[in-house]
Amino acid sequence: MTEAAVVVERLEKTLGKNKVLRGISFSAQPGEIFGLLGPNGAGKTTTLRIICTLLSPDSGRVEVLGFDTRTAPQEVRKRVGVVTADIGIYPRLSARENIAYFAQLSGVPDADLKRRVDAVIERLDVNSFADQRAESLSSGQKQKLAIARAIVHDPQVLMFDEPTSNLDVLASREVREFMVESKERGKCVIFSTHVMHDAERLCDRLAILHQGQVVASGSTAEVRGARRDLEDAFLELVGVK
């Protein structure tokens, strides 16, 4: 097995009076899609936010490509790209300007900026609306823009937090295809979702979170076991079935 891109060990986190994470551990490899599954409130988003250094853990440890999130957060951020369901983009900037802004803030040198932005625009087929103001884009176009913004600095780790929850069928499929393509390029993709069907199709390995704990982990086939599908396994593991 190759060296893990993301290592999460005994992660604990309390937000307000809620103990959101209760000792979560897992690791994700380069060239795989790792699924974080769980019902709402299971701790998926909090886990991702800790990995990308937006939150710090109360205890436990997270390493991204060998960099500790507590001691080297800047190095971690340089190597991580995040796409969420909340497509936050600057409405008065064009799609191209949005991408360029995040590229610059992510440390892409000025000499390389145009080439990198153009490459991402080409790769995600953003050309047709690249110079439109973001406020005039459709939801699918905005999500493409959010992905472009997240990958413009060519991060080794990509995290998708419920990326298709506000999208139509076509746009959702494009996002899924992009995740697979990223995996094939050797990126470590962490995919947080509560859509079991998507997880079963896309994930190489996964962890099921429930009430802040990992209740099952392993390859998708291992977690499914003898059950009919992943949904059945999930419902059984979280105690519904």
């Binding site: 990308c52 995040v82 983009i89 803030l105 440390g107």
Partner: peptide, 11 residues
């Protein structure tokens, strides 16, 4: 606008 999270994610 929910751009804050993306902004804080940059290095």
């Amino acid at each position: 606008r929910r751009t804050l999270e993306s902004l804080l994610l940059t290095p």
